[in-house]
Every structure is written in C-alpha cells, then in structure tokens.
Design a protein around this nucleic acid. Sequence first.
RNA 1: GCCCCCAUCGUCUAGAGGCCUAGGACACAUCCCUUUCACGGAUGCGACACGGGUUCGAAUCCCGUUGGGGGUACCA
Length: 492
Amino acid sequence: MTVRVRIAPSPTGNLHIGTARTAVFNYLFARHNQGQFVLRIEDTDLERSRPEFTENILEGLKWLGLNWDEGPFFQSKRMDLYRQKIQELLDQGIVYRAYDTPEELDAMREAQKANHEAPRYDNRHRNLTAEQEAAYKTEGRKPVIRFKIQDDREIAWNDLVRGQVVWKGRDLGGDMVIARAAEGSDIGQPLYNFVVVVDDIDMCISHVIRGEDHISNTPKQILLYEALGATVPEFGHTPLILNQAGAKLSKRDGVTSIGDFQAMGYSAEALANYMTLLGWSPPEGAMEEIFSLEQAAQHFSFDRVNKAGAKFGWDKLNWINAQYLRHLTPSQLSAQLVPLWQAAGYDVPDDSVWLEGLCVLLGQSLNNVKEAPEMARTFFVEPTYEPEALAHLKQAGVSAIVLAFEQLFQAWEQEDLDGNWKALGEKIQAAINEQISVLGVKKGLVMKTLRMAITGTKSGPELVPTIALLLKRKVVAKRLALAGQIANSADT
RNA sequence: GCCCCCAUCGUCUAGAGGCCUAGGACACAUCCCUUUCACGGAUGCGACACGGGUUCGAAUCCCGUUGGGGGUACCA
C-alpha cells in the first residue's frame, strides 16, 4: 500500500508548534515508508482565514525542512467539488435540510443542560414533511445541511497510537451540520468535517495523522467515508504539546509560533529535533537524542509514539540548540554569525581566516546565535572598562605589567603575525610565562590584568586566543596604552 | 454536566510479567579541567498517583478511585 499523508493547517493564525509537530510526524512517517506528504490549506472559514497566515505556514514548514511532495491545495478553490458531493448525498437522502434558527438551537441546548444531559441536536428536522419544509421556506428560514447519524451505531477504529477506539453514535451530538445555512435550495458553505473527508478521499490519503484534539471528529468522519462509499483510512491521534500547567499549548502561552522561535535564534534543525522528541523516542540503541529529520525518518514508527501529552520545556530545547551550534564547522558558524555582527553595527573585516578563528573561539560557549553580538563585542568595539576592571587596574603593581605587555605587543604588531593560530597562541603563552618570571608576579595576576586591560571585563572567552585575534587586528597595544593611563592615574 | 483519552524522576522519556536495587537525556548540586564565564569530564539528587485483584512473580495485565487533558459549534 502506498502511504500518503497530509498536513492540513487552517490559516487562521501563524504556524503553531502543535501543527508543526503534527507535520513532523506526518513527514517522518511518509519518508520512512517512501510515501507522499501532501500539504492542504483548510481555508473554508473565509472570515477567519488570512493570506498572510498561509504565507507564514508555508514559510515555517519550509524553514523546518518539512518539504511536502504535493500541494499546497486550497479548500477555498474546491468548493464546487464539496457542493457536488453534498448534492449527491442530498439525492440519496443521507443528508437533509434543517430549518432550526440559532435561537431555537440555543434554547434546546439550554434545556438539555438544565437536565444534566449532553447538548446535542435532537434531529427534530430529520423527517420533515414537504408541507413543513414549504412552510419554513415561506417563513424565510435558511436551512443548513445535516448528515444523519444513527444513535445505535457503533463506530470503531484501530488507532495507530491508541489502539482500539470505540464510539457510540448517540455520543456524536446528533445529526451533524455539514454545510452552513443558505438561501432556499442553495448549498451553503461546506464545513470542516465534511470537506476533510471529501479531500482525504480525493487525495487518496492512506493515513490520517493529527492531534488528539481531533479524536472525537474521527467517528463522524468514518461515517462520512461510509456515506461517500470510500475506504476508511488509518487514523493516528498524536499526543498534544502542553504548556507548563499541563493544558494544550495555545497562543496565550507566549511563544508558540514557529516564526517566533526562528526570530529568537533557534536553528530549524534543533527545533525539529526537539519537537520530534516530544512524544516520540528512537528505538533503544539506535541513536542519540541529537538527530536529523532524515535520521529520525529511518527509525520512525507509531509504535514508539507516546499516548500522553508532553509539556513543552525551554531547557532541553536550549540544550539541543547549543549542541547543533557546537557541531557546526567554523565556516558554517561564520556564515551565520557574520550577518548578525553586521546587523549589530560592527565593522566586520573581510578576513575569513580571522572570522573563523573567532567562531572557533566563541562557538564553544555559544548556546544561541543571538548571543553572538554581545559575546563578540570586544573583537569589534573598543572596550569600556567595567568598575571592577577600573578598580583592578588601579591596584599597585598593575601598571608595570600593563606597560611591559604594551611594549611587547606594540613590537609584535609592527611585525607580520603570520602563521597559524596555534603557533601564535603558543608564542603569546610563552611571552606571558617569560614576563611572569621577569616581573616576579603571579600568573593569576598577569592573566587577570591582561583580560581586564585588553577587554575591560573580568570574564569572557579564553584569553590567549582572544589576544591572538586582537593582535591580528592590531588593537592590543593601543588598548594596553589606554589601560596604562588608567593604572597610572591612580598613582598620582 | 455528558462523551472520550491519558497517568514512570521537576521536565522529556526507556520499560511489551522475571533482565528493574526502574535505564538515559535536560535541569539542579558537588568535584575535576581552567586566569574568568562557558564548554567538556566525573559523581550525586531524583519517579512507577492510590487501592484492589490475576500470577510463584507486576512499572508492565484486569477492575476501581483519584488526578490531568481533549471534545462537546452553522470553527478548524
């Protein structure tokens, strides 16, 4: 059997992480089975659907690497098909027109509620006589189309993640509306539960994989498959992504759209990796927790998809993101960081060797690319001295250290500093060791002094490579001279 | 209210009756590495919701309780 799955987002908001995770599972399942992954935009609700959301959804899926094989198909362009199918069902007497007003339906539900009954349509218009219908029509009532659901029907399916699920017809809320109200004998706007089934049949979808929040739609849709004379596909209802309180993650929980994560500096690979881990786990021993979509696809199956919902958590996402950053080559990292540095207004030299050297240095402690501008500040901008640095520089004996290194590095900066980073680093280290014995001071004091004098701060990346990088830019002597002035100002 | 689903460390999870003194990852703590902050390494803390069965044996199977979630539209 050919596997064909689909992701069917509704463009009533930006691409949500829940939708994206459903897309991930669909994608992985399709790839694992050499099947097709179809994208369908469910924009039947004209009032709530917006083109910019469609755009956002498409962009987000592409960014995550969830490339679809067919589509996007737009339901708004397929209305004729849906109406034709409804007409067929109308002709067969499987669906019918119901003339209830919203007020009548409200009143009915209120009464049921008061009676501690489940709100449901009581099918009161299922068997209207021609006279009754005519009377409602002359009254000017606009009918909806309802699909007959027998109370005594039992609907069961073998869910890909949940196993056997059984539903009773009477718990489905009565005959279901499949098209909105419309004038006289027109067919109004077709509704979700109906169009989904028509499309999934038309697009030959073999496995319907969606969030658990759709589970109660499934029995209704199975009935529709039967009514339309189609084969019922497999269904798999994945667990939901939950917020910290354990409820379904919604827009109100802050950052939930894929574009937000992108803007926060997360990499697509890391986010996809994290989403995959929310509800699925690789077979034991198959691979570590860091993996690509392609690797996950090799091992993916619904046997290993959890039933319980998973709470979204930043800690692990941050960790995964950092892992990806650490696995980047210097040139890959450079390609990501340079634009950010330029955007921060830094004067970035056109020197790939230097830039990659900087990336190697910063990459080991970078958890998110957004940290790069601040972390790299001292390599592009003259330092401002922190109070602690000022206090340190003004200590007795510090100025001698600063002066010694100023003279030393000034000489170096006159020369060519060719050779690799390792050699330069060793040269710096040797010079530091020599000065320690010449000046007769402790190593800690020298290192601390150099860091504060050259960068103005007490913490930062490894000092020796930092000096090496800055020597290449010929700013070390200058900075030491400035620090020397600060140190001397204390003596007078 | 009614219907449905779910239940292992704080979080994500492994676990398909004996391999479980319940494994891993994140987070947290301590130590090591280190001039610093990180990174990395090591160690530690830490869970089978509860109650009944079934069985020689249950985290695993059954029932109930509790708790949580989803749904209950002329939205998707």
